[in-house]
């Protein structure tokens, strides 16, 4: 119930934010928040899921606060050395709920046509990316589908924007382009399936879960590299299986919880968050 002299951050939002922060702390304090994964850290976490859910059901400020409390908690109590660095523990966590909220908001309102248009745009971008990376590699002077020999003339290579020298770099660049292309195609297929079945809400929630999880993973790993805790060549491959597992788990858990919440919310009636 919003009255005139009440700020935008009303009672309902305060309480829901607080309770979700409590869930985040609980998941962190017990072993419940960790699931085993085959990678060096051995754990995928769902501790960031309350922040994503807060972003979806109560808005960006709630998401920010839940993420902040979760970060503060892991900073104060963690025994993992690098989480004793506030720039690793707290700062990245602030953004989980915020990015989740905006991806949810931007997708939940779309209709069929917008969905198909979006799929078409992504497909076109994938095609352009693949075309560029196999025909006109910046730095590899010759445009051809056949694997091009690197141009020995330094004047040609140094003129390009991205200076890829030698065959290994070109091959790596093409491999990355193919991976991005495959991910893009998968995104298009999933997007069309969801839109065809009119599961836009589901699509928005899943996307929010993926974006929130990626925000957490990318920013934390980025901070670990920037702060010199781990070299990039070691941590990025080490964290990949965990990142994948976390995305899958976060999507399933978030979708289940948000569906339950919407059920609860429609039963309740009255004011909404």
């Amino acid at each position: 119930m919003q009255t005139a002299n009440q700020p935008a951050f009303g009672v309902r939002r305060i309480v829901i934010t607080g309770i979700l922060a409590a869930v985040a702390i609980l998941l962190g304090a017990t072993r419940l928040g960790f699931l085993p994964v085959p990678n060096p850290s051995g754990n995928a976490t769902i501790m960031h899921v309350p922040a994503i859910i807060a972003g979806i059901i109560a808005g960006p400020i709630s998401g920010l606060i839940v993420g902040g409390i979760f970060g503060l908690y892991s900073f104060l109590t963690s025994v993992t050395p690098f989480f004793k660095d506030p720039l690793v523990a707290i700062l990245p966590r602030l953004f989980i709920g915020v990015t989740a909220y905006y991806s949810y908001r931007s997708l939940r309102g779309i209709n069929r046509n917008t969905g198909y248009t979006l799929a078409a745009i992504i497909a076109a971008l994938v095609a352009v990316l693949l075309y560029i990376s196999f025909t006109n590699i910046p730095g590899a002077a010759d445009a051809s589908l056949v694997y091009p020999p690197p141009n020995p003339d330094p004047a040609v290579t140094s003129r390009s924007l991205i200076n890829l020298q030698g065959t290994a770099a070109v091959r790596a660049y093409q491999a990355i382009a193919v991976i991005i292309g495959l991910i893009g195609i998968a995104v298009v297929v999933v997007l069309i399936r969801f839109v065809q079945q009119d599961k836009i809400e589901m699509l928005a929630v899943s996307t929010a879960a993926i974006v929130g999880t990626l925000t957490n993973t990318i920013l934390v790993v980025g901070m670990l590299i920037v702060r010199g805790w781990f070299p990039a060549a070691v941590i990025i491959p080490a964290v990949l299986p965990q990142a994948f597992a976390e995305i899958v788990i976060a999507v399933i858990v978030t979708a289940a919880v948000v569906a339950g919440w919407q059920q609860l919310d429609s039963d309740r009636g009255g004011s909404s968050v």
């Binding site: 305060i14 934010t17 607080g18 309770i19 922060a21 409590a22 702390i25 304090a29 409390i69």
Partner: peptide, 10 residues
């Protein structure tokens, strides 16, 4: 208040 509620409900 959010922090209080969080700590209270853990």
């Amino acid at each position: 208040l959010v922090m209080m509620i969080a700590l209270r409900f853990v």
